[in-house]
């Protein structure tokens, strides 16, 4: 099958694949942003026990977690226009990309809602009571006290969701969207260099994933800086500032004097 393996093709194909990177990233960013909104809308009824909406949220989450995303893509791409037709809305001319983004937004929204729910319940009730005792209303208590801490807790889970979303976008080619995997398919057909194409493709996904991982790690560190002790921070500062080590030297000196056992 295909032509003989030739390593140089990996590089040329890598460059060619990059032309579809924009589409993939567009799907990821748009669907995650929408997914966060969907996640909140789905999580709130369960967090605040809102009677009619709560079971709806549960069904929504079960469906989008419990069925393959490929089938969700087909159902929404072929099914949604039919449903909207009943409401006399014609979406048959809408770009495929819109359906794809819509599907991934709902799909990751279901997972994000679970992450939000877990994170919000992880912020201890006592701090909410303290916020109320200070005189805050429930909106102030949520946005000032609960949300920033919940966000920090949920970062590792969110990172997983975003990376999973990135990899899932590869299924969009089945609807004919020319994102990374779709582009790879066309290159395979054109060049007959199967293995080289897929190595290059895997490389691109891997690089983006690693980049995302790094970015999320950084974000988590920043948001959780309040949970690290003074000693840990000083250590970090010291190790970061090896180049401009004067400051690090001073902090280490101070700790030495305090006898903190460093």
């Amino acid at each position: 099958m295909g032509k003989e393996f030739e390593i140089t093709y990996v590089f040329t194909l890598f460059i060619k694949l990059l032309s579809a990177l924009g589409t993939t990233m567009f799907i990821v960013v748009a669907s995650i942003l929408l997914g966060v909104i969907v996640g909140f809308l789905i999580a709130l009824p369960r967090l605040y026990n809102i009677p009619v909406l709560r079971p709806f949220s549960q069904v929504f989450v079960s469906f989008f977690r419990g069925t393959p995303v490929l089938i969700q893509l087909f159902l929404i791409y072929y099914g949604l226009p039919e449903v909207l037709k009943l409401l006399s809305l014609d979406v048959s001319r809408a770009p495929v990309l819109m359906f794809v983004i819509f599907t991934y937004a709902l799909h990751s929204g279901a997972f994000i809602s679970e992450a939000i729910r877990a994170a919000v319940t992880a912020v201890d009730r006592g701090q909410v009571e303290a916020a109320y005792a200070v005189g805050m209303n429930s909106y102030q208590a949520f946005s000032r006290i609960v949300l920033p801490q919940a966000l920090a807790v949920s970062i590792p889970v969110l990172a997983n969701i975003v990376i999973a979303n990135l990899k899932d976008t590869s299924l969009a080619f089945s609807l004919g969207v020319i994102e990374l995997t779709g582009k790879a398919q066309t290159l395979v057909t054109a060049t007959q260099h199967f293995i080289e194409t897929y190595i290059a493709l895997a490389g691109i996904y891997l690089l983006i994933s690693i980049g995302l991982e790094k970015a999320f790690n950084k974000m988590e560190r920043r948001l959780l800086s309040h949970e690290r002790s003074a000693v840990q921070k000083a250590e970090e500062r010291a190790s970061y500032s090896l180049l401009s080590s004067y400051k690090g030297f001073v902090t280490r000196l101070k700790l030495g004097k305090g006898g903190s056992g460093l």
């Binding site: 201890d124 006592g126 701090q127 009571e129 303290a130 005792a133 006290i145 920090a152 948001l223 949970e227």
Partner: peptide, 9 residues
């Protein structure tokens, strides 16, 4: 409060 309940962040 008994458990202080400071805003941890």
């Amino acid at each position: 409060f008994q458990q202080y309940n400071l805003f941890k962040h």
